[in-house]
């Protein structure tokens, strides 16, 4: 694209163009700055446009059309549609002027911009399942997916989407309201021992009907163990008998050394912020 063409665009279009080119820092720029940015960027990237091969030879309006087609494709939420076919679709206004050619041209080479190949991902895989993950001691993250049939069974039948926690095989009495379409939920289960599972279902009046059951997760330990067993071993890949355990620390000494064990360990991880300024 040349400079005059940029000048014909609105600031909003310029910004989206800058984003499409993988540039940064454009959001706070004024029109003149944006023009300068795009101008210098397109001048410094001749190789990128050459990569498009045959497409580069295609006329400017045709390329615009393809980009539009690609944009529609992305909106439809089906990024995996055959590229050849969607690239051939012409934008409506062009189609109105030119009749469809009878002989289809050979499929064009890939025209996607590798770095922006996928702007959106499917919001659902239409599968009925829920997966439970540990986040930190006593905090859990659940994400779930469902198909239309299940959606009808819960929402369509007037049920309230609800979670129920199962601790060590015992179902909690309390129920948790969730938004089915959120597909994710964080929740808190106090207590340190045992296995946690979750049921996702619908509350119909006062009756809870479970539809999905999550994977089981073992709760985290967040305090020192009360088990003081001393079992000494030599790993099979080592030899020898060295290693003195004649003076194991008593619980008192141990606590004197370590103090109360912190659950939060906030003092480190000043990790490199891989920053763009």
């Amino acid at each position: 694209m040349s400079k005059p063409e940029y000048e014909a665009m609105t600031v909003r279009e310029l910004r989206s163009k800058a984003r499409a080119m993988g540039l940064t820092g454009y959001s706070a720029m004024r029109r003149e700055e944006l023009l300068a940015l795009l101008d210098s960027a397109s001048a410094s990237k001749p190789a990128a446009s050459q990569k498009k091969g045959a497409t580069a030879a295609a006329s400017e309006p045709a390329r615009k059309g393809k980009r539009k087609a690609a944009a529609t494709k992305k909106k439809s939420g089906k990024p995996t549609a055959a590229r050849g076919a969607s690239a051939l679709q012409k934008p409506k206004e062009t189609a109105a002027v030119e009749p469809e050619p009878v002989v289809l041209p050979p499929p064009p080479p890939p025209t996607y911009e590798p770095f922006d190949e996928h702007r959106t991902l499917p919001h659902s895989y239409s599968r009925n399942r829920c997966i439970l993950m540990l986040k930190s001691p006593e905090w859990y993250f659940l994400h779930w997916d469902f198909d239309q049939a299940l959606e009808r069974q819960i929402l369509g039948a007037g049920g309230r989407p609800t979670l129920r926690v199962i601790r060590n095989g015992v179902r909690d009495k309390g129920l948790v309201d969730v938004m089915l379409l959120d597909r994710r939920h964080y929740f808190y289960v106090p207590g340190q021992e045992g296995q946690i599972k979750v049921e996702l279902g619908g509350l119909f009046g006062t009756e809870f009907v479970p539809f999905l059951t999550s994977n089981p997760v073992d709760a985290m330990r967040l305090a020192p163990s009360t088990d003081d067993t001393i079992e000494l071993v030599v790993p099979p890949w080592l030899e020898g008998t060295a290693g003195d355990f004649s003076k194991p620390l008593s619980r008192l000494e141990w606590e004197r050394l370590y103090g109360p064990v912190p659950v939060d360990v906030p003092w480190y991880k000043a990790r490199r912020p891989k920053a763009k300024k």
């Binding site: 930190s136 001691p137 330990r221 079992e231 000494l232 071993v233 060295a242 360990v265 480190y268």
Partner: peptide, 19 residues
């Protein structure tokens, strides 16, 4: 080579020590 047998607990070195 002689050491104590034990299983460590959930942990990470991230902020707050878990995930």
């Amino acid at each position: 080579p002689v050491q104590q047998k034990a299983t460590p607990a959930h942990s990470s070195w991230g902020d707050k020590g878990y995930y």
